[in-house]
Design a protein around this nucleic acid. Structure first.
Length: 543
RNA sequence: GGGAGCGUAGCUCAAUUGGCAGAGCAAAGGACUCUUAAUCCUUAGGUUGACGGUUCGAUUCCGUCCGCUCUCACCA
């Protein structure tokens, strides 16, 4: 797969150039402009839907015109069927020598698959009942110099699909559908928030400090200011400054950049929705999240009913039932019991406090014994769990690590719909404060913060919390971050003095919410890879 | 970054133990005025990702590199 062409490819293109030249010789512009069709394929189809799929004579009382790409071409010499694809769908055309003007038919003989055409004529239905436009006018609007991929097998090579997305979109309707779905999702998000009197804003995507998330940034440089800049990893701190400024409900659909590994769930640039809502708590946002996801899915259903039905039937989770809402510590206790490791089960029975104590010291020697307790215990990722626990500095991080290795891999198994057929989205709530430097401490238990993450079919989709608005507490947490960086931690935040100054002016009590738009689009369209919902995913340089 | 796999015609895929690199679609020429993966006759199309090695002989075996896919780690 390179940009270099083989002789065979050059030949195919040369042939098409000859046909283009033939059009010019016939005084037709192979890149004509200013031609507008009066109809779309779907419109014409809809106008005749009541007829049913039965043969029907040519109806000269009706005239339609469509423009689009020729996806199919079958010639009988003096008559030809072709299928034209426009933004709405596909419709068949029929060109007969004795109907078309002579000049049109001559030009038509130069037409082939992939060209963009204009066709005008009267409708009829073929003997198999397919609605077809018999052309009285036909013009090549744009000559295509490259052939389309195989009409039956299409284009399946992943690399070519990503690198030449334009071809992917032409020949793979389900690919185009996923991207249309993404657009509908984004506009539904906007509509839902706008209806709640949110203000959509745009904040900087080039930052002088790293903040708002734990991630490695991309670096860039401004020449005139001679300024080192970081591409934003999250819009959070700017949006909360706007809460201080009196915008009580703000959101941004923000492209973020993180200089980390690529995977089926991670692209270096991705889109995040963040909103901040004054005088609301994280508990309020859980309810709103359920409502929002259902509304988004409903909007998708309305916009793309046929595709949505397919996605819904194949969807391994359901959003119709109330989502589970479980404190992280509770989830760890449940999951620990399920391992049937006797010491863990005892610790859980005694209130669960002892569990972290058991795991606090290196448990490498006990893994062998523990793993025998149950099939589930055997399957745990013991190596990484042990390593992760050993890296923890405090019990909060240990609880989080337990959650990661004992709970998260089993979310889709442990949390099911009422009839057990689908997985149920889970709000994991009440995080240890050490893992959440921007979240508000829980009033009853200051070792926790008022935070949740939403997991849909085992994948993290949302992250939200009641916002920390105590400037002194925030300053302390920034300092802790800076200390960790000094000790070598890579993904920590900088101390943002201006943000603390803003908090000192008083930020109204608020809850904030983040959601990966790419991941939401994946979830709703059953996309196995984030690259299926990002039009041009990052790839290595071609060639 | 670690591990596994893949790379053959424009597209989708074959190729026996290492023995002349093939098919369908697309393309070119011809027949055909209701096709639905149209049909029939004819033709052309290849640096088998790149470089090197083993061999009389490499798409096939070995090494290096490039690219992609999956997966693990980091993360959303």
């Amino acid at each position: 797969m390179t940009l270099g062409m083989t002789d065979a490819e050059r030949e195919l293109i040369a042939t098409r150039r000859q046909k283009r030249d033939a059009l010019v010789a016939l005084r037709q512009n192979p890149y004509a402009n200013g031609v507008t069709a009066k109809n779309t394929a779907a419109e014409i189809e809809a106008a005749h839907a009541s007829e049913g799929r039965v043969p029907k004579e040519l109806d000269k009382t009706k005239t339609y015109s469509v423009a689009g790409r020729v996806m199919f071409h079958r010639s009988f010499g003096k008559a030809t069927f072709l299928k034209v694809k426009d933004r709405s769908g596909i419709i068949q055309g029929y060109a007969k020598q004795d109907v078309l003007p002579e000049a049109d038919f001559k030009a038509f003989e130069q037409l082939e698959m992939g060209d963009i055409v204009f066709i005008e004529g009267h409708p009829f239905r073929t003997k198999t009942g397919e609605l077809t436009i018999e052309a009285t006018k036909l013009q090549v609007l744009t000559k295509a110099l490259r052939p389309l991929p195989d009409k039956w097998h299409g284009l399946s090579d992943h690399e070519t699909r990503y690198r030449q997305r334009y071809v992917d979109l032409i020949v793979n309707p389900e690919v185009a559908a996923a991207f249309r779905a993404r657009t509908h999702v984004v506009s539904a998000v906007r509509r839902i928030l706008d209806d709640q009197e949110f203000l959509e804003v745009e904040t900087p995507s080039m930052h002088t400090l790293i903040g708002g998330a734990a991630a490695k940034p991309f670096k860039t440089h401004h020449n005139a200011l001679d300024l080192e800049l970081f591409m934003r990893i999250a819009p959070e701190l700017y949006l909360k400054r706007l809460l201080v400024g009196g915008f009580e409900r703000v959101y941004e659909i923000a492209r973020c950049y993180r200089n980390e590994g690529l995977s089926t769930r991670h692209n270096p640039e991705f889109t995040m929705l963040e909103y901040y809502w004054a005088y609301r708590t994280y508990e309020d946002l859980m309810s709103f999240t359920e409502v929002m996801l259902r509304k988004i899915d409903a909007a998708l259903k309305q916009a793309m009913p046929a595709e949505h039905a397919k996605w819904l039937s194949e969807r391994p989770f359901t959003i119709d039932e109330p989502f589970a809402r479980v404190p992280m510590a509770e989830m760890v206790k449940r999951a620990a019991s399920k391992t049937e490791i006797p010491q863990w089960v005892d610790a859980v029975k005694n209130g669960g406090e002892g569990l972290v104590a058991i795991l606090k010291t290196d448990f490498g020697a006990q893994i062998k014994e523990w793993a025998k307790s149950s099939p589930r215990a055997k399957k745990l990722d013991w190596g990484n769990f042990r390593q992760g626990m050993n890296k923890c500095d405090n019990d909060g991080e240990r609880l989080f690590s337990c959650y990661e290795y004992l709970v998260e891999p089993y979310l889709t198994d442990d949390y099911r719909s009422a009839d057990g057929s689908k997985s149920l989205p889970v709000f994991v709530k009440d995080y240890p404060y050490e893992t959440s430097p921007l979240a508000r401490k829980n009033d009853a238990n200051p070792s926790l913060v008022d935070r949740f993450e939403l997991f849909v079919h085992g994948r993290e989709l949302c992250n939200a919390f009641s916002e920390l608005n105590d400037p002194d507490d925030q300053a302390d947490r920034f300092r802790a971050q800076v200390d960790r960086k000094a000790k070598g931690a890579e993904e920590t935040m900088d101390f943002d003095e201006d943000y603390v100054r803003a908090l000192e002016h008083g930020m109204p009590p608020a809850a904030g919410f983040g959601m990966g738009i790419d991941r939401l689009a994946m979830a709703l369209t059953n996309a196995p890879s984030i690259r299926d919902v990002i039009l041009f995913p990052l790839l290595r340089k071609e060639g």
